[in-house]
């Protein structure tokens, strides 16, 4: 039970970082959303074999992390959760694309391996960019900004609720699991034949709980329209942030940095 509670706290620890004070934290959510969105678009726009051109994009998360004082381990730990999915997506390339791309220290590196690394690296960049956005912007401000950008209200509300109810769902599951285990001394873990009713009960209980949480939110004036918040003007520092992040990214996309590599090395 305590373990689940600490796991729940762990989920929200990234968001707690968003309450820190730094130059990046103080920027308008719109510019942070825009630069993150542009970064992701540019990263995925590269061909899957263009690992060399992707490499300089690492500077975006590195500089942002340094400026916002976001601890590396928290971000890496969360990226590690997505790693199996990335490997699963790229492993078939290693099997089917065996043409040699280049030779490194006597080893033939196939096109498939380059593609696999490209997928993992790309995922790392995109996931890190999103995690950093959450780490430097409170979730309520991100969703308020999404509403101001006229994203369909239903999607933003669903996203908000899903994010908030992770803890509710885990809490209910852990309570039920503890009660189950206390009455099943001879068994280890949840038995297959009880899975169905356990999942069904969990769904009903979490739905019920979610409704109570939503009622508590409504009682304190929540309505999705008002959740847009007050419009805040962009400051000079916000424009500077936007220029300092977006212009180098666009330049890196347009200029073929491989030529620069050959000059440097």
């Amino acid at each position: 039970m305590a373990d689940i509670r600490s796991k729940i706290a762990d989920i929200y620890s990234l968001e707690q970082l968003s309450l820190k004070k730094s130059w990046v934290h103080d920027r308008h959510p719109l510019v942070k959303l825009a630069s993150t969105f542009l970064f992701i678009i540019l990263v995925v726009s590269f061909d899957r074999y263009e690992l060399a051109r992707l490499a300089p994009f690492i500077f975006y998360p590195v500089i942002l992390m340094a400026l916002s004082e976001t601890p590396w381990p928290i971000v890496l730990k969360r990226f590690a959760l997505t790693l199996p999915f990335c490997l699963f997506a790229g492993i078939s390339n290693v099997i089917f694309e065996r043409k040699t791309a280049f030779i490194l220290m006597g080893l033939n590196i196939s096109v498939g391996v380059v593609s696999l690394f490209s997928i993992v690296f790309r995922a790392f960049l995109c996931v890190t960019a999103v995690l950093l956005l959450i780490a430097v912007t409170p979730m309520s401000r991100i969703t308020a900004q999404l509403r101001r950008l006229h994203l369909p209200d239903i999607f933003v509300t669903l996203f908000e609720m899903l994010y908030r109810y992770i803890a509710v769902l885990l809490g209910e599951a852990s309570t039920m699991y503890t009660a189950y285990m206390l009455r099943s001394t001879e068994f280890k873990g949840l038995q297959m034949r009880h899975m169905g009713s356990f999942a069904g009960q969990l769904l009903i209980r979490s739905y019920d709980r979610a409704e109570r949480v939503y009622n508590a939110m409504k009682c304190r004036g929540y309505d999705s329209f008002a959740a847009r918040g007050k419009k805040k003007r962009l400051s000079a520092a916000d424009y500077l942030y936007l220029a300092a992040t977006c212009l180098p990214l666009i330049a890196l996309r347009i200029i073929d940095v491989r030529a620069a590599y050959s000059i440097v090395f």
Binding site: E15, Q16, V168, V213, G221, Y222
Partner: peptide
């Protein structure tokens, strides 16, 4: 339901 007590207490006034 918010990450910090501050946010929970601020939820209503913000609304």
């Amino acid at each position: 339901f918010m990450p910090l007590i501050y946010d929970d207490v601020a939820f209503g006034p913000r609304n």
